[in-house]
Amino acid sequence: MKTKLLYHTNSFTYECTATIVAIEGDDIALDATAFYPGGGGQMADRGIITWENQDYPASVISMHKRNDIVWHSLDYPPPPLGTKVVGTIDWDFRYQMMRTHTALHILCGIIWKEFGIQVTGGQMYPDRARMDFAMENLDKERINYIEEQVNTAIEADYPIRVYSLPREKAFAIPDLVRTKINLLPPDIEEVRIVEIVGLDLQADGGTHVNHTREVGGIRITKTENKGRINKRLEIMLDSYNS
């Protein structure tokens, strides 16, 4: 049994019809889902699941992925196994996560390109995000330069491509994994690639926008010294007008 991950092929999918294939208490597994279950610093999607003869929509209160199955925890007793349901994500929240995730890829792409520095961690929040780097020097001049270069890349409107490659072919790409520790499972057979064409290419499992201008712009709002060679940058997004 395996859940088809619709967000992997199209991050703009916000609704889908699916069948319940397993139930554990108030948790349901579906044969397909548009909900991103969280991971890699990106927050899980929010939203509702509906079906026929339901008193009110069931909110998805949490999610987790176990092996190849995505589980959706509901605030409402689920219907029987085999029931057709409709899952609808909170699109505003998802799009914010997509813009934020792409912004972080631009940030680490610029820092790698300019300074050859790896990522040591990261996390997204509804209103901001942070990324940690194996960086010794982070003075005001460098902060301003990084912010300027990131916003220049956003404005350049690079297209973003998402595709998968066989493991051997993927790992033949230099610097594919930008984190200091390789977090990819050792038994993975296909590697999902997110490429900001002309700027950055990384292994990644999250959701992204289609071109960099959708990010809108970023501001580095806070920095922290997390160790002699570990610095944290916190960013916020500017608005995007399509």
Score class of each variant (00 low, 15 high):
51 W>L: 12
52 E>I: 14
55 D>L: 15
56 Y>K: 15
59 S>D: 07
60 V>H: 06
60 V>G: 02
66 R>D: 13
70 V>K: 09
72 H>W: 00
73 S>F: 03
78 P>E: 06
79 P>L: 02
80 P>W: 04
83 T>E: 10
84 K>D: 12
85 V>D: 02
86 V>C: 14
87 G>T: 05
92 D>V: 07
93 F>Q: 00
97 M>H: 05
101 H>P: 01
102 T>D: 02
105 H>R: 11
106 I>M: 13
108 C>F: 08
110 I>Q: 03
111 I>Q: 00
112 W>A: 12
113 K>M: 07
115 F>A: 09
116 G>E: 01
118 Q>R: 14
120 T>M: 13
120 T>L: 12
124 M>H: 12
124 M>A: 10
125 Y>E: 14
125 Y>V: 13
125 Y>Q: 14
125 Y>L: 15
127 D>A: 13
128 R>I: 00
128 R>P: 03
128 R>K: 15
129 A>L: 11
131 M>L: 11
139 D>N: 13
141 E>K: 14
142 R>V: 12
143 I>S: 08
143 I>K: 14
145 Y>F: 10
149 Q>W: 05
150 V>C: 10
153 A>I: 04
162 V>C: 15
165 L>K: 03
169 K>H: 04
170 A>I: 02
171 F>S: 09
171 F>E: 06
174 P>F: 09
175 D>P: 05
179 T>Q: 08
179 T>R: 11
